[in-house]
Design a protein around this nucleic acid. Sequence first.
DNA 1: TTGGAATGTCAACAAGGCTGACATAAACTG
DNA 2: CAGTTTATGTCAGCCTTGTTGACATTCCAA
Lengths: 167, 167
Amino acid sequence: MAEGRTGSGENLLYLTDEQLRQGIEAMFFAYRGFTADPDRILTDMAYGRAHHRAIHFINRAPGTTVNNLLNILGVTKQSLNRVLRTLIEDGLVESHVGTADKRERHLFLTDAGQALEQQLSDAQRARMRAAFRDAGPDAVAGFRTVLEAMMDTEMQRTYTRLKESGA
Amino acid sequence: MAEGRTGSGENLLYLTDEQLRQGIEAMFFAYRGFTADPDRILTDMAYGRAHHRAIHFINRAPGTTVNNLLNILGVTKQSLNRVLRTLIEDGLVESHVGTADKRERHLFLTDAGQALEQQLSDAQRARMRAAFRDAGPDAVAGFRTVLEAMMDTEMQRTYTRLKESGA
DNA sequence: TTGGAATGTCAACAAGGCTGACATAAACTG
DNA sequence: CAGTTTATGTCAGCCTTGTTGACATTCCAA
């Protein structure tokens, strides 16, 4: 850590209320940009952000159970169920009764579901890639560090588990 | 910029699809944490995130017009109006007809409105402060750089204008 | 074998987005 | 001054996506 000019051995000027408020507003405006491109694609097809999230994480962990997805998404099972039902009806997601435990449903994307996932994540990654490239690798590392520290501890674990499963 | 091992003079491994996907998931989980604390306070009082946003930006720019707030928040006037109406009815916000242009309404927080704003932003800043402190000043700088690069250009301008007005 | 826990489904409601239509008052313009 | 544009507010109605409550099915353990 860099030596500061406060005498306490560390410069804490980055923790002033004004700096924190700028961080809060940056999160607000950036999140809008973050979701803007997929949102545009989705409204064309009568889907919403909730569908995107479900598709994203089913793609990330094929065969995941409804309950597992529930924990990742942090919504009620009823809320998720409505979204899943439309995705299944529309042939984007398949639900298979579990073999070991028949109460569980295992979720998979169909080819059509994968095609939509691709389209959505291409759009979202394009913006992220541009932002990362503009900012450079050191800034990206800092970005990730701060975001991880901002999560609830339970979500940190979920995030890390996903990260390691995909790497 | 650091020399990489790609031969092109720059290491672009931080731009792989897997890295971008991790960035996307980090945004998703972190935003949940970001809103969690104010959300808890708000549900106790029959308000929602929309009320929080209005209160935040009225506090940030007292006397702002409805139209200006509309541009910052990026919602329709009908949507904002519903929120403002309840805040005015409940005595948290005051609306004053403009002196120069009498069509405009200038918005201010009442004392009660400021008290709630304080309560909400204290909660949100506490989490942001903890995250910033854990991550350190360099990471925070990178965090801000990436978020700015992720915004739509119009929002970048809005964000910068707010930032400079408060500093 | 029976009662509780886990899982998933259906119904109904609320918040907060949206569009469209319309009213009013003020400002601006030819 | 007449006509148009701008800023704001309101009503009605729709959609998505969150919520709770009630309930069926399945599994497991006492």
